[in-house]
Design a protein around this nucleic acid. Structure first.
Lengths: 191, 191
DNA sequence: CGAGCACTTGATCTATGTCAACGGTAGTGG
DNA sequence: CCACTACCGTTGACATAGATCAAGTGCTCG
């Protein structure tokens, strides 16, 4: 783990959870995230990574390489991901498509802000809802990754997830190839 | 205060601190923020405003109106602001300009995230640095607005600002027309 | 000069952090 | 196929940063 790169050989842009997608300050191209969840980190000079942002299906990653020639953040896959190169074909520099991406980015920023404010339980629930598919199924990142995203501690996340499970807000399900403690179905409809 | 709108008569797009720029779900056009700091809020159905995002000089506001026909967030001026309509002239739907805005938006999201994590003092200092001009001068928003941005309480902000002043990290200065408790110069260089 | 905010400050409470020990899962190598 | 081991997650006991509650004080503007 933590070795594969999107530019390396991979099966049709599929990357496993935990994989490094690209490194900060490395050269490369942009990507469209088709499936999965990606974590972006600011890399301090001393090599310390601090959570910077989140990308979910549909988002554009690394568009800044078109401007600066290299990536600003480090990107790692939090769940299994599928990426395709961006810009591509006629969609390319289409300004209508860019406008949509800009509006999406501003919406995503607001969602991220919401995940870092208020009660701990609400933050975790907010993230779970953000990551859930239409059927209410989620493959959660590790407790530590959830903690980094919500600015809480992994022990706190562990307690909250367990409590949500006990109160039947979420229900553990098994998905092949996914760690037993990470796949859930929402017990209640997404509001 | 809290009454003027950007679309109303105003002197050359200048708005005073506290002014409403536009309301969520209202129709209108996009804006380029030329000077000042703007707060964006998510408006719940019950009229409750929750902080969603921050815009600083150079940012584009309300670009989603081109897609949806109305604003997603409510925008209010935290300091005196100057706005110009967007898109405008040749800059218009230029995809290079949109790409820059997209990269900026992603950078801004990361900065916002950083303002909501870690020690309270670091968050406030981070915001002060984000808002300071090149000379290290800042007109701070109200304690309550700083609290909403950093997800702290205004009493906590008050204590922290006072402590920064006493430890000479910041120094109060007087600016005409600005409340005595809000204008500061950084006592230490911006790292 | 007086009213209304915005800010300051003290005392106390509590949600979450911290530290520590242990348990379970899954990947690895014999 | 099993044993080993490295993570990852769970749980308890205790500490603390910041929240909350409660008076004040001092700007600004009318």
């Amino acid at each position: 783990m933590r070795a594969t790169s999107a530019t390396s050989s991979n099966n049709q842009g599929h990357l496993p959870a935990g994989a490094l997608i690209y490194s900060a300050r490395a050269p490369g191209n942009g990507w469209r995230l088709r499936e999965g969840v990606v974590r972006l980190d600011n890399m301090a000079n001393d090599g310390l990574a601090t959570f910077a942002s989140l990308a979910i299906a549909g988002d554009i990653l690394g568009c800044e390489t078109l401007l600066f020639g290299c990536y600003t953040f480090r990107a790692t896959a939090l769940t299994q991901c599928r990426l395709t190169p961006w810009p591509e074909g006629p969609e390319a520099a289409d300004s209508a498509s860019l406008l949509t991406s800009l509006a999406n980015a501003q919406q995503r920023a607001a969602e991220l802000v919401a995940l870092r404010g208020g009660q701990a339980t609400d933050r975790v629930l907010g993230l779970i809802r953000l990551l859930a598919d239409q059927a209410g199924r989620v493959v959660l990142p590790t407790r530590q990754d959830i903690a980094d995203i919500t600015d809480l501690r992994f022990e706190t996340i562990s307690r909250i997830v367990k409590q949500l499970e006990r109160s039947e807000m979420i229900r553990s399900i098994r998905i092949n190839g996914v760690h037993a403690t990470r796949s859930f179905a929402l017990g209640v409809a997404i509001p």
